[in-house]
Design a protein around this nucleic acid. Structure first.
Length: 204
DNA sequence: GATAAGATCATCT
DNA sequence: GATGATCTTATCA
């Protein structure tokens, strides 16, 4: 059994948290269904000077969450259509968070619709479904602002659990996505993802 | 395969 | 009034 990640896990340097979250589980409870998915991609947003981070604009009603307690969720609407799920890191007062960019689902069994505004897409079967983006992820998981500023350490609806340790050579890093406006900060290699073994699933 | 445009709104200026 | 930590669909090659 996996253990729920506690306050200490998040109260650490953001890069460490972002790396360590890879391979861990994000757990969502909807009704009496519990869905556990594996985190495969994260990004760190670190400190008051990181221009890619919302917190670089200072403390506002929105960003104050990033200045708050580690382990809390920071969720916001982007492009008018999608939610992004972050978890606050580092000590209170230092604005930082990790964006959960992608997860994989096993044996989904149709528990989630690809879109909440359309009919269920049926049985995903034993296929591994990848949600390859923060917006999609929230859509699958029915994550919205009702979970914003909630504590992942105590939440009964959405939380993190530890996973198997990954070999360090399977952890890749690169530039963050979609932050080209951020000057020198756009080049920081603060995106982390698990190297995928090439599975030939070309539908020929 | 690649690239472009459109959707749509909270937040901040 | 402008913009963005995105994704889908359309069009071209």
């Amino acid at each position: 059994m996996s253990r729920k990640l506690g306050r200490r896990f998040f109260n650490r340097p953001t890069i460490k948290v972002a790396r360590d979250l890879l391979g861990c589980y994000l757990v969502r409870k909807i009704g009496n269904k519990v869905i556990r998915v594996r985190i495969t991609e994260t990004e760190g947003y670190i400190g008051p000077n990181d221009r890619a981070s919302h917190a670089s604009r200072g403390r506002t009603p929105r960003t104050k969450i990033m200045f708050g307690n580690p382990g809390y969720f920071y969720i916001y609407l982007i492009y008018g259509m999608y939610y992004c799920l972050n978890v606050v890191t580092e000590k209170r007062g230092f604005p930082a968070a990790v964006l959960i960019r992608a997860v994989t689902l096993k044996n989904n069994n149709g528990a989630f619709c690809p879109r909440w505004d359309k009919k269920p897409a049926g049985d995903f079967g034993a296929k591994i479904t990848k949600t390859d983006g923060p917006g999609k992820l929230c859509r699958y998981f029915k994550v919205d602002k009702s979970l914003n500023n909630k504590d992942s350490v105590t939440s009964q609806q959405l939380w993190f659990e530890g996973g198997k340790l990954l070999r360090t050579e399977r952890i890749m890093s690169g530039k963050r996505i979609g932050v080209s406006y951020a000057g020198v900060w756009q080049h920081k290699p603060w995106r982390f993802y698990i190297k995928i073994r090439l599975s030939k699933r070309r539908a020929h």
